[in-house]
Design a protein around this nucleic acid. Structure first.
Lengths: 183, 183
DNA sequence: CTAGTCATGTAACTCGTTACATGATTAG
DNA sequence: CTAATCATGTAACGAGTTACATGACTAG
């Protein structure tokens, strides 16, 4: 479980050019929060360390007084590329929803169902948000002209695809549990 | 991000009866690793604390010499049930695969594709494993007679359903990226 | 003038991982 | 006899979260 925040920072800076810590956080929240999240408490120390290690540096041009804009260095690019070619690390699964559900016999059916319903609604909301971004992308020539376009499109589709599958499961599962009980 | 290991322990003990730390770990690895994982370094201290707090206690009956068997106490059951009715906590997403993929322009297409292929193969293997457990369940009368049966079935289906969706996405995505490049 | 947002940071903390240590038992 | 597995633990560490502090600027 190595520090992945640093690679996220390097990647974002290499894709979008000089940015401040605050901007990086905003970008995460706004554009990639469905698959990546950062918080200030971790981000700022990582930025300091990346600068100390010479992987990023202050961008003196276009100084916005109170912002600390960083740009990636050639050394930073190298480190990023090395990481990109490494296989994706195995991440042990931990789903609180499924854990609770597997203890279903220890709670009331109604409680289980309302837990599922709450989770389903959250997913449905996310699904709608991602879908609307998706259709925006498909109809926007400027977005399409960017080199990142195909990659952003497929990540988006991953999110949409997963949510779609989960919504289907929620429906089937709630139906199944209700009918199983009433036998 | 409260300590969820303790609830996992309480739940497992309440479902399966007295067990040792070693057995709990084995159960996680064998039966629920597709949605929950534990490791000894965390598990043993948590067991000690749960005992100190009176949520579990040593089971003196059927002592297996070198095993420390724990059973859940009434207080432990209460704590478990309180937690079960709480809504599932929001878990910020962090997918290394999608992060890397979103930086796709910074690497060779071939490297991206082989990263995807490796991930796809892992998922396919898991998919086959879960599917075989699923069909075993459906044909096993003893499993069906247990009160947990409907809950274990639906968690299993969650795993299968997600993997199925991801496999579909992997196929489409690799195809899309290849054809996008060659234009 | 005041509330909110912009922007950067630090300190304390908790969770979970990794690596190591130990001793007992069992299989070949 | 030896290697593997059973079984329990500890120490050190690192990642990431939460809460707090600070100051500047901005909209009503």
């Amino acid at each position: 479980m190595k520090n992945k925040t640093m690679y996220a920072v390097l990647g974002v800076l290499s894709l979008l050019g000089p940015m401040s810590g605050y901007d990086i956080k905003k970008f995460c929240d706004k554009s990639i929060s469905y698959f990546w999240n950062e918080n200030f408490g971790h981000l700022y120390p990582v930025l300091a360390r990346l600068e100390a290690d010479g992987l990023i540096e202050r961008d003196t041009e276009a100084e916005d007084s109170r912002k600390k804009n960083y740009k990636i260095t050639p050394k930073g690019v190298e480190v990023l590329k090395d990481w990109l070619t490494l296989p994706v690390e195995y991440q042990p699964e931990r789903s609180e929803l499924l854990l609770k559900l597997s203890f279903g016999t220890k709670m009331e059916l109604e409680a289980t169902l309302s837990m599922l319903e709450a989770a389903r609604e959250r997913n449905e909301l996310k699904y709608k948000q991602l879908s609307s971004i998706h259709s925006y992308y498909l109809g926007n020539e400027e977005a399409k002209s960017k080199p990142q376009y195909p990659y952003w499109l497929v990540t988006l589709r991953y999110g949409i695809n997963s949510l779609e599958a989960s919504l289907k499961w929620f429906g089937e599962t709630m139906e199944f549990l209700r009918s199983y009980e009433s036998k």
